[in-house]
Design a protein around this nucleic acid. Sequence first.
DNA 1: TTCAAGTAGTGACATTTGTCATGTGAAGGG
DNA 2: CCCTTCACATGACAAATGTCACTACTTGAA
Lengths: 200, 200
Amino acid sequence: MIRVLIAEDQQMLRGALSTLLNYEEDIEVIAQANNGKEATELIHQLAPDVCLLDIEMPIKSGLDLAEEIFEAKSLCKVIILTTFARTGYFERAIGAGVHGYLLKDGPSEELAEAIRRVVNGQRMFSPELVFNQLKQDNPLTSREKEVLKLVASGLTSKEVSAHLFLSAGTVRNYMSEIINKLEAKNRIEAITKAKEKGWI
Amino acid sequence: MIRVLIAEDQQMLRGALSTLLNYEEDIEVIAQANNGKEATELIHQLAPDVCLLDIEMPIKSGLDLAEEIFEAKSLCKVIILTTFARTGYFERAIGAGVHGYLLKDGPSEELAEAIRRVVNGQRMFSPELVFNQLKQDNPLTSREKEVLKLVASGLTSKEVSAHLFLSAGTVRNYMSEIINKLEAKNRIEAITKAKEKGWI
DNA sequence: TTCAAGTAGTGACATTTGTCATGTGAAGGG
DNA sequence: CCCTTCACATGACAAATGTCACTACTTGAA
């Protein structure tokens, strides 16, 4: 019996999927989580064979969690299940050694099959992703990403500098460079573009 | 037997829901559509008792379709099923006389129950919506919304002013007032907040 | 070991943004 | 008719933002 945990904040989908998976004879959904933090605890307690993770969840994202699981060298296989075909997300997921990455756009029957495969040590990726991947990586350095994320959350340059213990001028230099790299007109466009590509 | 049509562009959810609903003894999913246009045709052909409509779909949105069904004085009951708790969407849906408005965030068991209710002539709304509705309507005037939307798309104040044939000062006054109304620190926060509430 | 990149900083400058006071005219409700 | 709200406008000022040039230290790869 394959023991599965589902982390997905959209209750309707979570409920529907777990009911469906439970109809499979070899699969049992042993836990459901509303967000990454809940999932972390449940994984520790129950050690499921497979985790189905949504990316965009409150508190802790599925990618954060996938990275933690990877760091911990856990035996639990991870399948990312998301709406977003953003290359940035996919890249990060690959970096975190996930075993599967499926789009919610795919057929629901595919899911049980994917679970069986990853348990078998195979990997399963939506073909759209693999295709998209063949270019466009994040041009921002890690420091630049940090700065842009804070700016995107509404902080002014000065506040960001206090946050990161940098001088105000440095932050403005970073922003200038970011705007330049992303070919944006100002920070607002930079934020939009970076989000679109999944770079922050 | 209640005959149901599902229009939802996210295949995974659509597949899962229709399988689930088909397990109910009194409900049968007679058609699935990928978008509003497909749904329109299927409704004409099959005259389902209930339509389950997602809002954000390609080609024609669920709200557009709901309005058409309403105009046509069709007997088909409409349930909107969406991720978005935006008051604007809800308002429009109420205007289109929908029989139910559920969030994908709700439990999946609720759905079959909601379908039975609306067939019975009752209505079914996610309580969150009704609650939100009574509070928070959009504090922005239509002009302010217009300005904020353009700013959110990355335009500078000057560009917005050219776009709307206003003086640059006026646009800055609007932005100042918007930032004030939304209790934001700057335009970036104002954009984020307005988007969160579904005000732009 | 040289070199490119990333990180961090300064100073100067122009532009954009945000705030305030203040004024006008139009529309709508009581 | 008065009062409020909205739309639109100015001018003035302070603060934030964006750009440039130039310096300096560290690190990893060729």
